[in-house]
């Protein structure tokens, strides 16, 4: 979480600190690199492609994207036409479901592990031992159990997002100021009340760190699982388009994934800023 604070201190906005438009300045600075890359990519292509026809140039990608997003559905000639939103919705709902399950399991479990030495001794070794198994290695088991179905994808997302959430929640719970807990006990709080009213809020900054990392992994997991284990969503389209040689759709798909990941992270940061107002004040005063 210190990263957020340091962002604020040394972030691009500060360079324009004396100016009236620090936000606009930050946006402009952030756009320099992507715009330069797109321009370079465009001018190094000829006849709409680079690398000897292996990849399309940005204008072709843009065209394909427009058709994918807004074109009329026409199953025969262009199966992608007008299906972008549908794919986005499929993938997003899967991420939302898998991520929600990961939170519902990961946060309470992390609090238990961080709170009780006994629970930590029982669960922590298993978690640490399963954690290095990448989500891709879970694919065969997932397909074997759930078949080519929605829940196979959700299962992989849950597994991927679960580890950073549970581990950060554990750390946050362990690091709670001892005197806050003592103060609550002194005021007559039951152990459960201490967990709910002291440990949970005190651990929230760490929990949000876990959520942000977990959400990033959730997007990786949804794409991987859709490429193999289901027949819809951005990951499915990505692999399908590659097979039929539609690299324009592949690239438009990649950009879409990036945008969705960015938007969902932005959403979490907004929620975090709202929930942790008390903490923002703290870092300004410090």
């Amino acid at each position: 979480m210190s990263s957020l604070v340091s962002e604020r201190r040394a972030g691009p906005g500060r360079i324009f600190g004396g100016l009236a438009l620090p936000r606009l300045g930050a946006t402009l600075l952030a756009l320099i690199l992507p715009v330069a890359l797109v321009v370079l990519w465009q001018i190094s292509g000829t006849n709409g492609s680079i690398f000897g026809g292996a990849l399309p140039t940005p204008d072709r990608v843009w065209e394909a994207w427009l058709k994918w997003a807004f074109g009329a559905s026409s199953m025969g000639l262009n199966p992608y036409s007008g299906t972008w939103l549908e794919s986005v919705v499929f993938s997003t709902i899967r991420v939302a479901k898998g991520f929600a399950i990961a939170i519902l399991i990961g946060v309470p479990l992390g609090i238990c592990i961080g709170w009780s030495r006994m629970v930590a001794k029982v669960l922590d070794p298993t978690i640490q031992w399963l954690r290095p198994v990448p989500i891709t290695a879970w694919l065969p088991i997932s397909i074997a159990i759930f078949g080519i179905a929605d829940f196979g994808s959700i299962f992989l997302i849950t597994i991927g997002a679960f580890y950073p959430i549970v581990i950060n929640t554990t750390h946050g719970t362990r690091d709670v100021e001892r005197n806050w807990i003592r103060a609550a006990l002194m005021m007559g709080a039951s152990p459960f009340t201490v967990l709910r009213r002291v440990v949970l809020p005190a651990a929230l900054p760490s929990i949000f760190t876990g959520l942000r990392i977990g959400l990033g992994i959730a997007w990786t997991a949804v794409i991987v699982s859709e490429m193999v284990a289901v027949k819809s969503g951005l990951g499915y389209v990505l692999w399908d388009a590659y097979y039929v040689g539609r690299m324009d759709i592949v690239i438009a798909d990649m950009v879409s994934i990036g945008l969705l990941g960015y938007l969902s992270d932005w959403l979490i940061v907004r929620v975090e800023h709202f929930v942790l107002r008390w903490r923002r004040l703290q870092s300004f005063n410090a």
Partner: peptide, 26 residues
């Protein structure tokens, strides 16, 4: 009632919420 060296108030609660924490949880 214990008064701690560095007050040990809950930083996410307002003054009022900190003061009524005890009776509330009881």
């Amino acid at each position: 009632g214990v008064v701690f060296q560095e007050a040990a108030l809950m930083p996410w609660l307002t003054v009022w919420q900190n003061v009524i924490f005890g009776p509330q949880v009881q």
